[in-house]
Design a protein around this nucleic acid. Sequence first.
DNA 1: ATATTTACTACGACAATCGTAGTACGACAG
DNA 2: CTGTCGTACTACGATTGTCGTAGTAAATAT
Lengths: 110, 110
Amino acid sequence: MPEISSDVIRGYNDIIILYLLLNEPSYGYEISKQIRQLSQDKYIIKETTLYSAFTRMENNGFIESFVNEDLAGGKKRTYYRITPFGREYYLAKCEEWTLTKEVIEKFIVY
Amino acid sequence: MPEISSDVIRGYNDIIILYLLLNEPSYGYEISKQIRQLSQDKYIIKETTLYSAFTRMENNGFIESFVNEDLAGGKKRTYYRITPFGREYYLAKCEEWTLTKEVIEKFIVY
DNA sequence: ATATTTACTACGACAATCGTAGTACGACAG
DNA sequence: CTGTCGTACTACGATTGTCGTAGTAAATAT
């Protein structure tokens, strides 16, 4: 049961994370679990990769962070919310993916 | 007319190059042109990327280099030939690609 | 004669990922 | 009440493929 390394997915962690923020804010640990679930354990993102992606994407204006005020539902966390600019970026990246996929597949033997 | 950067394809230049060596040896300039043609100008590999990929792949044992002896058909060139190990690697990478593609597409909205 | 194409090499910068390590809070078992 | 496990991070330096810029030189076209 082979697993994918983040290095192979390099450059696409952004859209993976942004996808999971499209509908509601979320935070590191939860996103990590969702990636694992959605990929059926094929892709398990490294903590360092994930958190440094958050920092980078916040600096780029794709996401915004806030801290949960009422700690009713657990402990203190840093949540991230996608920005309008982040949505644009996400869509642009999806198009780039489609193009990239088409190109690479010309060099794959089946 | 958007173009793909090598950084996006990162990690897959190897299979692109190896694909073009599957049937016969070739060299930098020719491979560069073939990538461009096959991708219909969507992907134009940088010279530095290409030549450093050659060095890396030779060090990894995926390809072997030799110089053309008779210069009838042009000038002196360094040709590269895929090794059996390189073929194995190519096939493994193709499988990895299939897996990677499946994973990423779960995070793409169409 | 000169410009363009061909065929490279050198070298340092960059940026995303990775490895390792460590902190600290909360829940739950024994 | 104590220790372990799961949660939720942060720090920091190493690694590696790609990129930018530059330069060389032979062959071909104008």
